[in-house]
């Protein structure tokens, strides 16, 4: 329990460090929101008017002045105002969080479950066609950029076969009076292609990891003991094998969550998925620093929370860590 409390404390400190780091990163990046505004709505504004906007946004302050103002506001839950969207940042971000998390978790679930199933089946017969096919599939999965996979999927399932929707989260023609179930089914249909295109690269990782891990586990003495007890092979595999084989996968899962969210940015752009990724992409183009900082913070916090969760699950799965064992 103390170990988990320590981890939570560490995570909070890490979030603070990440807030500062994100701010520095955006501060030193070339261009500012004023440049973007000058090219757009402030195109005809005088120097004095531009200076007034700069002052209103706090951009006239020193680096440390801006940093402390930012940290103070964020700690109070205020992510500032977006001069591009002309709205508070929180209002812009809030409706985008759920779609991104939905896409990320659905891609993760797809990658983990299918990956473990394929990897485990391949580990049982290392010389089989499935096992060597997995290596080829993993190479292809690694080599294909997510946006390319996305475009291919759109072409095959959206254009040629016309089986699945290819853009957005819901059908635009859907009635506003549509019930929850109808809407959920529609969202699920829209989710399939983005999930597959984001999940496939991770699927390859998890399948190979599961294969390697399960091959080692299946050679273990305790697997021989489980068989000698008269257990059915499925119980040997899933109860005794997988519980041990899954440990390295959990470790990688936490570490890769950040990569998953960055992959989501590309996938959301390809599939017009209304998530944080697309908003981030637009914020970068518009130098909308407040929105960008808020998204970076959200993503960082999610990654840190995912790692914290990984640590907790790791302890639940492996009692040797929980009880401080040496073996």
């Amino acid at each position: 329990m103390l170990a988990i409390a320590t981890k939570i404390g560490e995570s909070l400190l890490l979030i603070l460090a990440v807030l500062v780091f994100n701010f520095v990163l955006v501060y030193i990046a070339p261009g500012s929101v004023i440049d973007a505004l000058s090219a757009g709505s402030l195109g005809d504004a005088s120097e004095a008017q531009i200076e007034a906007v700069r002052e209103r946004l706090g951009l006239d302050k020193s680096f440390f002045g801006q940093l402390f103002m930012y940290l103070g506001n964020v700690l109070q839950g205020d992510f500032g105002y977006s001069p591009i969207g002309n709205r508070p940042v929180v209002e812009m971000i809030a409706p985008r969080i759920f779609p991104t998390l939905l896409l990320a978790f659905s891609a993760l679930t797809f990658a983990v479950t299918i990956g473990i199933a394929i990897g485990t089946a391949a580990a049982r017969r290392p010389d089989s066609f499935l096992s060597s096919g997995l290596t080829v599939f993993a190479l292809i999965g690694f080599a294909m950029p997510v946006f390319w996979t996305g475009i291919l999927l759109i072409l095959v399932f959206g254009v040629w076969l016309d089986w699945l929707p290819v853009a957005g989260m819901n059908d635009l023609r859907m009635s506003s009076r549509a019930g929850f179930f109808e809407r959920a089914v529609d969202t699920a249909e829209h989710l399939i292609l983005p999930t597959v295109s984001l999940g496939v690269i991770f699927l390859a990782t998890y399948a190979r990891l599961a294969r390697a891990s399960m091959m080692e586990v299946l050679q273990s003495d305790y697997i021989r003991t489980a068989r000698a007890k008269g257990l059915h092979e499925s119980k040997v595999l899933f109860k005794h094998g997988l519980r041990n084989g899954i440990i390295p996968i959990i470790t990688v899962l936490g570490l890769e969550f950040g990569i998953l969210l960055s992959g989501a940015i590309l996938v959301e752009t390809v599939f017009a998925w209304p998530g944080l990724g697309r908003l981030a992409f637009e914020a970068v183009l518009n130098r909308d620093t407040n929105v960008l900082l808020a998204i970076l913070t959200m993503v960082s916090v999610t990654v840190i929370l995912a790692n914290l969760l990984t640590d907790i699950v790791y302890r639940l799965v492996d009692p040797r860590i929980r009880t401080g064992g040496r073996a």
Binding site: R224, T225, A228, G230, L231, N244
Partner: peptide, 27 residues
Amino acid sequence: ERAMRSIRGNDISMVFQEPLTSLNPVY
């Protein structure tokens, strides 16, 4: 294989050399 599963651990059982690795570490 089904008949053997009812024999293993029931009519014939085994004790192995290395008790640490022969017991499942997570149960």
